[in-house]
C-alpha cells in the first residue's frame, strides 16, 4: 500500500462542493417519491435549470436572479410532468424519461449563444473564527452559500416530513393514497406540490453546476448527475439524513478517484469510475436485507392514483 499523500482539507472541501448538486436534486426527488411519485426526469429538470440559471445570470449580472430562474426552470418542467402524470394519468416512468429527452434539447436551445461565457458567481458567508479551525475550518466553513443552503435543505426536509402535519399527510399520500383520500386529504394536490418542489430543487442543482461548480454553460453538461441523484434517494432509504450521506459518498468517490490519480497513485480508472455505483448497489442490498419485511420504499411509489377507484 503506497502512502497516499492527499490534501485532506482540500479533499473535504471538494466533497462538499461536488455533492451539493446531488444533494439538492436528491432532496427534491426524495419529497416527490415520499409522496408516491417516481419522476425519472431529474436529469431533464436539472439541465433546464442549469440553462435558465446561466442565461438569466449573464443577462442580469446577478447570480441570485440566476438561481431563482434555475429553480423556476426546473419547476416549470416539473409542472409539465405533474400535468401529464397527475392530470392526464400518464405512466410515470415513460413521462420521466420523456422529460429528460425534452430537457436536454430544450436547454440547448435556451442557452444557444451562451456557450463558454463565464457566469457571475456567488461568494459565501463569513463564518469568522470557524474558518481558522485547523484542517476542518477551511474545508467546512469557507464554502459558498449554496453548500450551506443544501445542508439546511436536508434539515428542512427532515423537519417538514417528520415534524409537521403537512409532511405527515404527504407521507400518508405516498404510503396509501386510497386511505389518504378516504380521510379527506387531497392526494393529487399534494403530489403536484411535491413534484413542483422536486423540480425547483433539481433546477437549483443545475444552477449550481452552471453558476458555481463549472461555472459556464456547455450543451449536455449535467452528464448524468440527475441519474446519480435518483440513485442517492434510494441509497438513502428515502430519509434526508441518509440522502445527505449518500450525496457525500457519491461526491466523495468522484473526488477521491480524481485525487488519487492526481497524487500519482496507480488506480484502475474504469473500476474506480464504476465504484460508486457498485457501492450503492451493495448498500441497497444491505438495506433491503436488513428490512426483509418490506423495504423502505413508499408503498405507492410510481402507482397512479384515481379518485374513487
Amino acid at each position: 500500500m503506497p502512502v497516499i499523500d492527499l490534501n485532506w482539507t482540500a479533499f473535504l472541501a471538494s466533497v462538499l462542493v461536488v455533492s451539493t448538486p446531488f444533494l439538492l436534486a436528491a432532496l427534491g426527488e426524495l419529497v416527490v417519491e415520499r409522496a408516491g411519485v417516481l419522476n425519472l426526469g431529474v436529469e431533464g429538470m436539472m439541465i433546464t435549470g442549469a440553462a435558465a440559471g446561466i442565461v438569466v445570470a449573464i443577462e442580469t449580472g446577478s447570480p441570485w436572479a440566476g438561481f431563482l430562474c434555475a429553480a423556476l426552470g426546473g419547476l416549470g418542467l416539473g409542472l409539465v410532468f405533474a400535468l401529464l402524470t397527475q392530470g392526464l394519468q400518464s405512466n410515470q416512468v415513460a413521462t420521466g424519461l420523456g422529460l429528460t429527452l425534452f430537457g436536454l434539447g430544450f436547454s440547448a436551445l435556451l442557452a444557444q449563444g451562451y456557450v463558454g461565457v463565464p457566469a457571475p458567481t456567488i461568494g459565501g458567508p463569513d463564518l469568522g473564527p470557524l474558518r481558522d479551525v485547523p484542517i476542518l475550518g477551511p474545508a467546512l466553513f469557507a464554502r459558498d452559500w449554496v453548500v450551506y443552503l443544501g445542508l439546511l435543505a436536508a434539515l428542512g426536509v427532515w423537519l417538514y416530513l417528520f415534524r409537521t402535519r403537512s409532511g405527515l399527510i404527504l407521507r400518508a399520500v405516498g404510503e396509501g393514497h386510497d386511505a389518504a383520500h378516504a380521510l379527506g386529504y387531497r392526494v393529487r394536490a399534494t403530489r403536484v406540490a411535491a413534484i413542483a418542489f422536486g423540480g425547483a430543487m433539481a433546477g437549483l442543482a443545475g444552477g449550481y453546476l452552471t453558476l458555481v461548480r463549472v461555472p459556464s454553460w456547455t450543451d449536455g453538461m449535467t452528464a448524468g448527475a440527475g441519474w446519480i441523484a435518483l440513485a442517492i434517494v434510494v441509497f438513502g432509504g428515502w430519509r434526508p439524513g441518509r440522502v445527505l450521506l449518500g450525496a457525500w459518498l457519491f461526491g466523495g468517490a468522484q473526488a477521491l478517484q480524481l485525487r488519487l490519480q492526481a497524487a500519482q497513485v496507480p488506480v484502475p480508472v474504469e473500476l474506480l469510475s464504476m465504484s460508486p455505483y457498485l457501492i450503492t448497489i451493495a448498500v441497497l442490498v444491505a438495506i433491503s436485507v436488513r428490512r426483509r419485511a418490506g423495504g423502505a420504499a413508499p408503498a405507492c411509489l410510481g402507482q397512479p392514483f384515481r379518485a374513487g377507484a
Binding site: F11, S14, V214, A223, A255, L258, A262, A263, S273
Partner: peptide, 19 residues
Amino acid sequence: YTWFDPAQEADAARALIEQ
C-alpha cells in the same frame, strides 16, 4: 475517460491544483 464532461473536468483541475 470522456472527451467532454465539464463538471468532472473542473473537479480534475481542482484535484490537481490541490496536489
